[in-house]
Nucleic acid binder design. Structure first.
Length: 1001
RNA sequence: GCCCGAGUGGCGGAACUGGUAUACGCGCACGACUUAAAAUCGUGUCUCGUAAGGGAUGUGGGUUCGAUUCCCACCUCGGGCACCA
């Protein structure tokens, strides 16, 4: 490494840049906001994988700066949360101190890489001046409700006046599902606490109870994404690996579900990868379906017909000790079960109804149910199971019938049994389903186990597309001959797996009968038949194949039952056209054509869904998988929630002028372990009535991108003026692991702030790029545990920051995970050395025209590649350029300077050194990005390939002004080509401009 | 199980919208410089074949003048979701 002293040069320029503040952001000009996901400053320091994203965004930001944009490229710290507190506990220091120490390490490691952050805009979520505004935003959310008609959040005070005027029946708002109706008059009569409780059901940040993931060891509640499974499949905390159980607790929630639809539709306008959009879509989990009521009937007690039982009988079902008599509310709803389904088209096949074991209606039916003891036992059994047990994939479904009551299928009036079963979730849809075993896998499995009826109501409509006949016949030539004779089209292929020949028949209506005749004849005379898969595959074989025995016993049993039918093949037509044979073994879940469905027969599933829903008085509804987010931690190290609990049970907020509500300084912030936050042990805090829970880790990170726009502002989280100027993040760079956390919460908060007019755009991140992980050379994640961590400090010391930067960009596509190779890094260093040496060849003379051309072509490529985050090919094209120009004796200064400028975003230090060596006084990073000259990227003569029948046979040089026919003629006359075309008729000549000529003979 | 994404030399990878597959880098081999080594520079490096030429982009088919690229089936790996009706 004698070429240049990277240690000296890099230090020198880093000092210079910070002295001259060359990366300082202005507040005018054409804006460009390039943001990295700010890190949690952990104690262990960085490995070479961490800076990859930062380097990518830095390259981009540097080019944009040179292109004349006013670039905002900041960095900060997300320092609240469990990890910091755990670290502090372990090291027996205050979390604040731990954070400060870690930030220092972090900044030292980052600073040597030469990233162009404007450090004057640094933010830290644990700074009271910062979290004042986190608390402020919380209060805005707390004081809002979601109007589904206007489709936006509105101040809670507006809701109060609406209640005052009309009560709540006509208000189309997002609220808790158990909210009851009241009139304007009733509202006025409600007590303070009643009003408070009702409003709480509408607030976008609300208090409630819920079953949560409780970690005894850590004394805290964890979010789903903070939990993993240990090797036995038991739930454990991601950090520490402590066991996690279910526990019901008082919680604060964020009503993110109010925004589910907008979070979904908002994705359309974003330049994010399809992959991450897919993850968010899945997470939000929208499904369009119908809510349909199944009436309840008590057989025996009442004569006949779907008559409802007397209210008195049902009322007797409520327990005396349940407190006030709810029978008025109880009446209608209790006499029917509301189910949610996306397959209303299959309702004629609904042969039973299932409630989740937790379903509130079950208790109401107590006196009607004849096997109550059994039911109670079952429910208790389920309660004691962990979620993990219940959801385990290979677990058999269990359930019990509610004997004594029946449900009425509203489509055909049939009486069907009612069950409770653990495969139905209380938390999704209505907590009840209509079971259609013929068309739903889960219902199918359950029905098989408990011997419940199965009724097929949808048949496949793709039968007429194609049928594959797979043969293991000794001689299938005859079969093919028969097909040919009947003019049935087919194609042949060999299955790579079974080595069977596949005859794919494209069936048309007019030869369906003919085809079936042939198959029937075969079955009758020569062979066995088997029908496989969902793909209409028929297997013709000489004997029962061994494969057969690989099927489950059950399948085999059923097959045997069908065997005489097949041997007799009376009804093959029916078997094929309805495919009942197959469908009765494995349920058919796709859309199709309705059958056995009364007047709806013949409709497509899609048509039927709408019509049937209407017919049974159902309602078209949309459901989401996403749940409201828990917004509380029983921990010390988080933002205090700025609310006070009053003795009368109501809650009041801390006034804006009293924000921030600062974390009290306490001696022991160790968790009490009782589920109470350490704050519950602070007397002064409790005396004031302050909320003892703190905010979760994602609070501070859900809006930090706004704070960078105006980080010092003490009057607002950012001034209107800077918000209007910066608007949103143009390019956001970070890891994929935040897809369902941070990236969703930030979008939620930003949408909310938009509704109230606090920010100018709905969506915060226009363009998102996810850097791939850098794995260790053994292909595993870099981790202390595997002892495979590569420290960037060592790389910077041995090879230089520029080499590290170039290598990390060159190693492969930015979004792809790649293994690190310290062996390969030398290539990037050599490249820099060669550029460094190139300066001795620089003259004041003009470069050769060929040299100029290469330069401009490369410049175009590099500019476009950086724009597209294709950093690897940008570096590679500069390497190609260098290979080319090294062949020349001399190179003009102008071209050399272009090379330096192109390279500057990747290797800021060495290019700055060389730039100053050319006599430039101003920093290269303040220079303007060179423009490529489109006249200098076209060649006069180009080489194209000539193919004969698609195979390259020679190359010819053409000039750019030759016509198509001239080129074709030149190709045909080429002597290499003549040896291939001699004596043959030229059928066609294809010319693709600037690429190839293909001669077909 | 369902839904995405990906499979190209010894290795990381390149190939625009269907148009000369294997750019660039690492490694390896040979050569030059050197007393020697390092560094540097040069040459070669998918495969079979002396050559002409043939064969290769996970496997098998298809469409096309032409397929890494489009379609169908399958295999493998990675990721997401996981009884969401």
């Amino acid at each position: 490494m004698q070429n240049y002293d990277h240690i000296k040069i890099e230090k020198k320029w880093q000092k210079e840049w910070s002295k001259n503040e060359i990366y300082k952001t202005l507040n005018k000009g054409k804006k460009m906001y390039v943001l990295d996901m700010f890190p949690y400053p952990s104690g262990v320091g960085l490995h070479v994988g961490h800076p990859r994203g930062y380097i990518g965004s830095d390259v981009y930001a540097r080019m944009k700066r040179m292109e004349g944009f006013n670039v905002l490229h900041p960095m900060g710290y997300d320092a609240f949360g469990l990890p910091a507190e755990q670290y502090a506990l372990q090291h027996k220091i205050h979390p604040k101190k731990a954070v400060d120490e870690n930030v220092k390490t972090f900044e030292r490691q980052l600073s040597i890489i030469g990233l162009s952050y404007d450090w004057t805009r640094k933010v830290n979520t644990t700074d009271p001046k910062y979290y004042k505004w986190t608390q402020w935003i919380f209060l805005q959310i707390y004081n809002s409700w979601y109007d589904k008609t206007q489709n936006k959040a509105r101040p809670i005070s507006e809701l109060e006046s609406l209640f005052e005027k009309n009560g709540n029946e006509k208000i189309n708002a997002e609220c808790n599902s158990d909210t009851e109706f009241f009139s304007s008059k009733e509202w006025k009569l409600f007590s303070k606490i009643e009003k408070h409780n009702i409003l709480m059901q509408y607030r976008l940040a609300y208090e409630g109870h819920s079953e949560v993931n409780w970690c005894e060891e850590m004394g805290t509640v964890l979010a789903n994404d903070e939990i993993t499974n240990d090797k036995n499949g038991n739930p454990v905390s991601e950090r520490g690996g402590f066991p996690v159980i279910k526990k019901s607790m008082r919680q604060w929630f964020m009503r993110i579900t109010a925004y589910a639809d907008r979070l979904l539709s908002g994705l359309d306008g974003l330049e994010w990868s399809d992959h991450i959009k897919e993850i968010q879509k899945n997470w939000i989990g929208k499904s369009d379906g119908s809510e349909i009521e199944f009436k309840i009937r008590v057989p025996g007690k009442f004569s006949s017909g779907p008559r409802l039982p007397d209210l008195a009988v049902v009322r007797a079902g409520t327990r005396e000790d349940e407190g006030p008599d709810h029978s008025e509310n109880f009446s209608r709803d209790s006499l029917s079960i509301k189910v949610f389904t996306t397959r209303a088209d299959t309702i004629f096949g609904a042969t039973y109804v299932v409630l989740a074991p937790e379903h509130p209606l079950i208790n109401n039916y107590k006196l009607l149910i004849t096997n109550w003891r059994e039911i109670e036992e079952y429910i208790n059994e389920i309660k004691n199971k962990t979620d993990e047990d219940r959801v385990k994939n290979d677990k058999e479904k269990t359930g019990v019938e509610l004997k004594g009551i029946k449900a009425i299928n509203p489509a055909n009036g049939e009486e069907v049994p009612v069950w409770i079963a653990d495969y139905v979730l209380a938390t999704y849809g209505t907590g009840a389903v209509m079971a259609v075993p013929a068309h739903d896998e889960r219902d199918f499995e359950f029905a098989n186990k408990y011997d419940l009826a199965l009724k097929q109501v949808v048949v496949s409509n793709n039968l007429l597309k194609s049928i594959v006949v797979s043969t293991t016949l000794d001689n299938d030539i005859d079969f093919k001959y028969q097909l040919q004779k009947s003019k049935i089209d087919f194609t042949l292929s060999i299955s790579s797996i079974s080595n069977r020949e596949h005859i794919r028949v494209e069936l048309k209506k007019e030869n369906l009968q003919e085809f079936i005749n042939i198959v029937q004849k075969y079955i009758k005379e020569k062979c066995w038949v088997e029908i496989l898969g969902n793909e209409n595959i028929i297997v013709l074989k000489n004997e029962v194949h061994k494969d057969f025995l690989n099927h489950s016993e059950e399948w085999f049993k059923k097959f045997l039952e069908w065997e005489p039918f097949i041997k007799g093949q009376k009804n093959l037509w029916d078997m094929l056209s309805k495919n009942t044979f197959f469908q009765n073994l494995v349920c058919y879940q796709d859309d199709g054509i309705l059958t056995n469905s009364g007047k709806f027969n013949g409709l497509t599933s899609e048509e039927a869904r709408a019509q049937i829903t209407k017919f049974v008085n159902g309602k078209i509804v949309t459901k989401f998988k996403m749940r409201d987010a828990i917004f509380a931690r029983q921990r010390y190290w988080g933002e205090p929630i700025p609310l006070k609990h009053n003795p009368d049970g109501t809650t009041t907020e801390v006034k804006e002028k009293n924000l921030p509500l600062e974390l009290p300084n306490i001696k022991s912030y160790v968790s009490t372990g009782t589920g109470e936050s350490p704050l519950a042990g602070v007397k002064s805090w409790v005396k004031e009535g302050y909320e003892t829970n703190t905010m979760p880790g994602w609070a501070g990170s859900s809006w930090y991108f706004l704070r960078y726009m105006d980080p010092q502002n003490s009057k607002a989280f950012a001034s209107k003026k800077s918000l209007e100027y910066w608007k949103d993040v143009d390019v956001y760079v970070g890891g994929l692991e935040h897809a369902t956390g941070h990236l969703l919460y930030s979008r939620f908060w930003n949408n909310f702030l938009f509704d109230l007019g606090h920010v100018p755009t709905r969506e915060p991140f226009k363009k998102l790029r996810n850097q791939g992980m850098i794995l260790a050379s053994d292909g595993r994640k870099m981790s202390k545990r595997w002892n495979n961590v590569v420290n960037p400090d060592d790389i910077v010391k041995n090879y230089g920051a520029d080499t590290l930067r170039i290598y990390e960009m060159f190693m492969g596509p930015f979004e792809q995970s790649l293994p690190w190779s310290t062996e390969s890094i030398i290539g990037s260093r050599r490249f820099i050395d060669r550029v460094f040496r190139l300066q001795s060849k620089v003259t004041n003379k003009k470069s050769d025209i060929e040299v100029e051309k290469i330069f401009h072509k490369t410049l175009k490529k590099v500019s476009e590649d950086i724009e597209n985050f294709a950093f690897n090919t940008a570096v590679s094209s500069m390497m190609i350029l260098l290979n080319e120009i090294e062949k020349f004796e001399n190179i003009g200064k102008a071209e050399f300077k272009i090379l330096l400028q192109m390279l500057a975003p990747f290797a800021p230090h060495v290019t700055e050194e060389l730039w100053s060596n050319t006599g430039e006084k101003k920093s290269i990073h303040k220079s303007s990005w060179p423009k490529w000259d489109k006249n200098k990227i076209v060649d006069d003569m180009i080489k194209i390939a000539v193919q004969v029948n698609g195979k390259v046979r020679t190359e010819i040089m053409i000039s750019k002004d030759m016509s198509e026919s001239e080129i074709k003629e030149m190709a045909l006359k080429d002597k290499n080509i003549l040896t291939w075309t001699e004596g043959k008729e030229i059928k066609r000549v294809i010319y693709v401009p600037n690429r190839i000529v293909n001669i077909v003979v």
